[in-house]
Each structure stands twice: as C-alpha cells, then as structure tokens.
Computed example of a mutant assay.
Amino acid sequence: MKPRLGFLGTGWIGRHRMEAMLATGAVEAGAICDPEPACADEAAALAPGAVRVDTLEQMLEQDVDGVVIATPSALHAEQAIAALKAGKAVFCQKPLGRSAVEAQAVIDAARDADRLLGVDLSYRHTQAMRQIADLVRSGELGDVFAIDLTFHNAYGPDKPWFYDPDQSGGGCVVDLGVHLVDLALWVLDFPQTGAVDARLTCEGRPLNAGQVEDYATAQFRAGDAEVRLACSWRLNAGRDAVIEAAFYGTRGGAALRNVGGSFYDFTAERFQGTATTSLAEPPDEWGARSAAAWAEQCAASLRFDAAAQNYVRSAEVLDRIYGR
C-alpha cells in the first residue's frame, strides 16, 4: 500500500510540492485542505480522489499516513505537532518554527511519535550545491575556512503576515537567510556554531518595535570556518535576485551562483588559484526535488529519522542573529 498524504495549504508552493510528490508514484493524495476555494480546486484537479476537508482536525480523521504543510509560518510548529501526535509523518515548508524552541518541540514530537519529519530546504537539492558538497566533504578543497552567503531578492513577499514578527518570526533572515545558514551547516556536516555578530535594518534604519528586517548582515563561526551572510528584500540590485554560496578552503574554492538574476538557474564552479572549472550548469529541475525525495522516503519507512535533529541547528543560528 502506498502512503496516503494530506495536503494542508495548496497555494502555489503547496500545489507544486504536491504535484512532485504524486509524480514519484510512491505516495497518493488522501485529503486536501485550503481556505481559498480556487486553491483547493486546483489541488483537487491533481488528485480527484482526494477528500476535501475544512480543517486540519478533519484531515487527521481521514485515512492519511502523513501531512504536507504549506501554511503561514506562525502555524507550522503547532500544525506539525498536532499531526505528529496523531501518528502522521510531516513534511513542512521552512521555517519549521519561528524559533529554535518551536523547532525543537516539533522534532521532539516526531521522535516521540516515531514518525518521519522533513523540511523543505530545497537548495540542498540543486545539482550545483550537491557538487560543491561532494568537493568539501571529500577534502578536495582542503580545510574550509571561509564561507560567503548571499541572497538578495529585488521583491518582497506579497502576504501581510510576512511583515508581522509575531506571525513570521522575522523578515528576510527567516525567509531567505534560513536557506543560506542551512547550506553552510549542511555542507560542513553540522559543526558547532559560535556567537553571531549581526545588523538588521528596515528601509536602511534600525528596527522599531513591530518591524521586520528587509536587510541583514551577520558573521559567525561554523566549526573552523568564518561565515559571512547578507540577505535582503527589495534591494536595488539591478536584477531579480543575487544568490551565492561560496566556500574557500586551503586547497581551493567553489561557489554556487544564480544566472542572470534568476531564482531557478544556478551554476557551480571550482576555483584553484586564478583557474575556474565548471561543475554544474542549468537547466536543473530542482525546485520540488526535496518534496519528491521525502515522498520516496515515506514509501520506504514512516519511522523517525534521527537526521531531523539537525533542523534545529539552523534555527539556533537564526535566534542568535535576532538576539533572542
């Protein structure tokens, strides 16, 4: 029997992940829930046999083995914990929680329920980033001592809740920086991290109460590497986006970079002195690869995967960036 999944939140991201999961053939859609009828209709077109429900509680009463969560950030931890306590596996959009405390509570619930937990940290699954991770882990770059991370988005989110710190947990750092921090820690196999020196601003000025940052810089240590991070919304960057993750070691360097301002096309290059070698080029259909991988993992086993404990590591760094 294929695992049956409930899809909670079927906006663009939720439907995109749903389509990728179903395309694997490893899982089936058992239930759909979205407060917007148009979103639910589009999801139902992908899975005509799925039951449409109005609440998470109703979804948990259905014959589903897992729940895929694509809702506003403030709801992630509470909804994930409820699903896990009901004995369902969970795949959640980032961030898993608005703080490390929330993230750890979800992980604890997954461990207690012995159920699989996944988070949609999609940039890990780009071909470019996998090539770089292989270089670092094999020791071909020597000892990595510096990492430069950048994610500037010339646009800002279009939903009001993103700008409410109580609902979002923060601004561009929790929206974009979480991917950067995760990449650095994931490539280095989640080393210990140190204190963070950070500066957060909104429209070029220090944050006032009730505001979220639209520009942030931070510096911290991850193992023996010095990590520098910069991210923003609505920066006058001259292109749609500037995305980069560069790793510098004692025997060489490597970097992921977006192409022509694209949010989707990436290159990976290896550096040795003044020489550059291409590692990966577009096209690469990576956007929903993390969702598909989780679906296949579900089909293999619904039991808790201890690697989920690493999700809190990035959340701890974000907490330090925010000074909490």
Rank of each mutant, 00 (worst) to 15 (best):
C231I: 01
I32S: 05
P282F: 05
F145W: 13
F266D: 04
S168E: 09
W286M: 01
P37A: 07
A133K: 12
E226V: 01
L135Y: 11
Q131I: 00
A50M: 02
E244F: 02
K85A: 11
Q62F: 08
W294D: 01
L22T: 10
E19D: 14
N153R: 11
A195K: 11
L200C: 07
W186L: 06
I81Y: 01
L256H: 02
F190M: 04
A308E: 12
L185W: 04
V242T: 04
A288G: 15
R115Q: 09
Y311H: 11
G142V: 08
A241C: 05
I69K: 03
V27M: 10
T150P: 04
P283M: 04
Q58S: 09
A80Y: 05
V242M: 09
R320S: 01
K88T: 02
D120T: 03
R199M: 14
G49N: 09
T193W: 00
D148N: 15
F7W: 09
Y264T: 13
T150F: 11
K159L: 10
P35D: 06
D305T: 08
S278W: 09
Q62M: 13
R324F: 12
L318K: 06
R15G: 04
R234V: 13
A40G: 06
A29W: 00
G260I: 00
S290T: 03
A255W: 05
S73T: 15
F266E: 01
R320L: 08
L121Q: 13
L318A: 05
R199N: 14
E57M: 02
L96R: 01
R257Y: 00
V144N: 01
S138C: 11
R313N: 13
T276P: 00
S262L: 12
D197L: 10
R221Y: 11
N208L: 15
L117M: 03
Q58T: 13
V317C: 05
R4Y: 06
V227E: 09
D41Y: 03
F247V: 09
D265N: 14
V106P: 00
G66E: 03
G223L: 01
V27K: 10
G177S: 04
F91C: 00
D166F: 09
A209M: 11
T217G: 12
E316Q: 15
A74I: 10
A292W: 03
G253K: 09
L200N: 10
A89N: 05
V317W: 05
E213Q: 07
E140K: 14
C172T: 02
R239V: 10
I147N: 01
A128Y: 02
Q131W: 01
Q211Y: 08
V51T: 14
W161L: 04
V106Y: 03
A254C: 07
A275M: 08
A308L: 12
A109T: 10
I132N: 03
L60H: 02
A306E: 13
G171W: 04
T217Y: 07
N258I: 02
V212Q: 02
F271H: 12
Q272W: 07
T267L: 14
S99N: 10
A77G: 03
R115L: 06
A218D: 03
L180P: 00
D54A: 15
I13S: 15
E244S: 15
